[in-house]
């Protein structure tokens, strides 16, 4: 099961997947989407999306509102079915038994207000296929972990919003899913719970759970995700490792902090983007030129304190891609 994660760009040799042309495939992904199409009435919500979610990764499913994220998630969670294309979970064609291996926390999430906390978790756990004993054991474990054992007999409606959010998270993971899908998990969460859930996400990842994290909050993606796919207007626009994506979109910008005088002739080697005192941002034609530039500065007696490459933020890339609406 422990296949190394090859570079995102290595195409998979599996014959069934060979027809994918422009896509970057992963070896033995936990989830694989193959040319998914979904239309509602006459609206094309998803228009030929393919991507792989590497096993054990935290995977960002990004896109502006109405891009088709929720439609995709509903297909993955078997809530709806794709018009065409195929979904593979852990190598198997998605079927109605698979929800038991998936934990899904929708963006808009609720609970049965009249139920007791324990009963509620038990009900959802049983519906995910856990036996009575296993359900009890797991619920105990999580209540213990969140130090809320005494909640068992509380009614959901008696809980504060923050408490309900904890409960929702437990309900999502109680059946030990292989794949966890979190749709805007931090929306509406207070900082304490946000932190708690972040910790748990990382903890679950260490346990081998693969996590799809859907959001349009880019700073969270940079913080949490290793891989991303960007969906816009029902198509995937961009995908890969966060690091690679950023590199792909970098503009060879460097920020230099120095003392002394800048030598003449710098303008011929690089374009000065910004300059404030002894802090300058420059752009070079190609990546390799950064070395020679640094050398040039040093040779002319400039005292360099810091020399940093400026990578674009995901937010910038996201906005640019969505605006252009073309494949990067």
């Amino acid at each position: 099961m422990d296949f190394p994660n090859f570079s995102t760009y290595i195409p998979r040799s599996n014959e069934t997947l060979q027809k994918f042309t422009k896509n970057h495939r992963v070896a033995h992904p936990i989830l694989s989407l193959d040319n998914i199409v979904k239309t509602y009435d006459k609206n094309v919500a998803v228009d030929g999306v393919s991507f792989d979610v590497p096993r054990g990764s935290i995977f960002g499913l990004l896109g502006p509102n109405g891009a088709g994220k929720t439609s995709l998630i509903r297909i993955i969670t078997t809530i709806t079915r794709a018009d065409s294309g195929a979904v593979y979970l852990d190598g198997e064609r998605l079927s109605t038994t698979h929800p038991e291996h998936i934990g899904y926390m929708p963006e808009e999430r609720g609970l049965y207000r009249k139920m007791k906390v324990g009963e509620h978790l038990y009900y959802l756990a049983r519906l995910k296929g856990l036996s009575a004993a296993a359900a009890r054991e797991k619920i105990d474990y999580w209540l213990e972990k969140f130090e809320i054992r005494d909640w068992w007999n509380k009614k959901v409606e008696e809980l504060s919003k923050g408490m309900q959010q904890k409960l929702q998270f437990i309900a999502t993971v109680v059946h030990q899913p292989k794949l966890l899908i979190l749709d805007e998990p931090f929306s509406g969460l207070d900082p304490v719970n946000t932190n708690l859930i972040k910790q748990e996400i990382h903890y679950l990842q260490e346990q081998g759970v693969s996590i799809i994290f859907s959001t349009h909050r880019m700073e969270q993606v940079e913080e949490i995700c290793e891989h991303i796919v960007l969906i816009n207007k029902g198509r995937n626009v961009l995908q890969g490792k966060v690091k690679d994506v950023k590199n792909r979109f970098k503009k060879n910008l460097y920020r230099i902090q120095y003392s002394g005088e800048l030598p003449p002739g710098l303008e011929e080697r690089a374009r000065i983007v910004e300059q404030t005192g002894h802090d300058i941002t420059i752009q070079v034609g190609e990546e390799a030129q950064s070395n020679s530039l640094l050398q040039f500065l040093l040779q002319h007696g400039v005292f360099v304190h810091a020399f940093n490459e400026i990578l674009p933020t995901l937010n910038e890339i996201f906005i640019r891609q969505v605006k252009e609406g073309v494949n990067g």
């Binding site: 809530i79 929800p99 038991e100 929708p106 999430r109 609720g110 049965y112």
Partner: peptide, 15 residues
Amino acid sequence: EKSNRIVEVMISSVR
């Protein structure tokens, strides 16, 4: 169930 948004959680487990 619908307005309380539990329904999406439910139907990710059952038909």
